[in-house]
Design a protein around this nucleic acid. Structure first.
Lengths: 286, 286
DNA sequence: ATCACTTACGGGTGACGTAAAAATC
DNA sequence: GATTTTTACGTCACCCGTAAGTGAT
């Protein structure tokens, strides 16, 4: 068989036209490349070059061989990447989420449950999550409702309750103990992160008269929240995760509407039940 | 990049299951193969094997890598064959013929006109010849009639006249000087080769009441002809080519019908006119 | 004179084989 | 004890680089 380095050399010669420049490109000496080309002709058993005394050019066969060699090189490159990706996929748990809360929380649990696995997280709308679960993109997905079909089962895996985040001076801050409803705050202007999954549709639907100032990321959000007096949102989960960072002058008031509490369900393909046994067991013992 | 010999080693291990038997198959020592597999893992940057103390097996990634490696090897093999075939095609003149006469005669001329070229000859019906000319299978074709279209031109390149070949004792042998017509021999039984292209359709059409004893090859035909008293066929061309071999007791009588003389035309793609200039010139000077 | 390819020669990397050890069946 | 893999070590092939030579621009 013909070794790869010879094919690479042939392609380099095809690309750069002369032995010298191709050799430079390949980081080898020019005589070495000259020898390789001779060797290549021997292995093919076919003439590939027109040689004059101080010039070597690819003949028709040589050009054709270079073109085909490039395809072989590409196919090898593809193979290497495919193998690496496959190996990587065997060592990573890919999860899809409908909201940022679980997406922030789950990797902590996963890295404890599967110490040797890498974790990859992604937020998408629920339709794409289900699609990705079925085509293998995700190992499991976190939805806001149960999902079952012939290939798929799901289990309840937690809840997340929405809160208003208000400055103490806000009139509604008085409702701290008793809670508020969406309708009571309808019409106010809120600060909100763009990437909050289904929360966004929910709040817009429940408070159709409100305006929402969107922020790109959680970082800029907390800056704006701290600097502004506008109401914002939090959830029990984010309050717990970030409480230590900033108790700074905001009061969190539970939203009483049942829609304000999401019941998360983890959906997994039935054929993968075994692989995610530890995760399932973890959810069942919450 | 990963060299081919490593991929071959991986595939051998996949096929034979153990290092020892794979090494034997590859004609290398077993430790050498062991090292190669370690090197391969290094190059992929990925584990490919499950190793116990005295057993090595491909893991999932390894099996997948072996499968993909095999495809790379096949693609390289294909490339090598394609290059060799392409080179060969550049150095051979492929011709298609409608009858055996020119097919026997032309290679002699061709090897003189194109001393460095190989010659490949084939007999087919005229429809397939034209098809083959257009798709590049043939460099030129010899037809029994002129053929011209937007891509193709043809030139008259010779004639071949059909003769009856009779034993001297045959009554019709008396017509030696004056010739015979198909109708005069219609009804007789002839010995005939199977592979004579359009001659066969012609004789059957012109002598619908005759029977034709078919022989596989020219060799068996001449044996049968010599041993038998049945009439047979010859042409000016075959008489000239084989006369030296056997003047043996047969008389050749020209067939007078105009259909018995074929006017051969050589068809060539217009784009190849330059390439076949010597051949065209040869035909024009006959 | 410079550039480009080839030939010639010496050196080093690395792939190989042999031998031996370790472990499993 | 037979088989299989790994480790260790010495050898050899082969690919490489330097240097010199030839011919063309």
């Amino acid at each position: 068989m013909i070794e790869i380095y010879l094919l690479e050399a042939l392609c380099a010669l095809h690309d750069y036209g002369t032995l010298s420049s191709a050799a430079e490109q390949l980081h080898i000496s020019q005589p070495a490349l000259s020898r390789s080309m001779r060797k290549l002709e021997g292995l093919f058993g076919v003439g590939l070059f027109e040689r004059t005394k101080n010039r070597i050019t690819l003949n028709d066969t040589g050009k054709m061989a270079a073109a085909m060699a490039r395809r072989v090189l590409e196919s090898e490159e593809d193979m290497i990447m495919a193998v690496r990706n496959y190996d990587s996929s065997l060592h990573t748990i890919s999860a899809g989420y409908c909201t940022p809360g679980p997406m922030m929380e789950m990797p902590l649990h996963l890295s404890r449950l599967y110490p040797k696995m890498k974790v990859s997280s992604e937020m998408e709308d629920e339709k794409k999550l289900i699609q990705g679960l079925k085509n293998g993109k995700y190992g499991f997905i976190i939805l806001s409702a149960s999902y079952e079909d012939e290939d798929t089962f799901s289990i309840l895996c937690g809840t997340e309750a929405l809160y208003f985040s208000l400055i103490h001076a806000h009139p509604a801050a008085l409702f701290k103990e008793q809670g508020l409803t969406f309708s009571q705050m309808n019409g106010e202007t809120f600060v909100m992160v763009g990437e909050i999954g289904i929360w966004r549709d929910l709040t817009m639907k429940m408070m159709p008269d409100s305006q929402f100032v969107l922020q790109d990321s959680l970082e800029s959000l907390s800056a704006v929240i701290n600097a502004s007096t506008l109401p914002a949102f939090a959830t029990d989960l984010t309050i717990r995760l970030f409480r230590s960072r900033e108790d700074s002058g905001r009061v969190f008031i539970k939203i009483l509407d049942p829609e304000a509490t999401l019941h998360y369900h983890c959906a997994i393909l039935k054929k993968n039940r075994e692989r995610y046994a530890r995760l399932i067991n973890f959810f069942e013992n919450i």
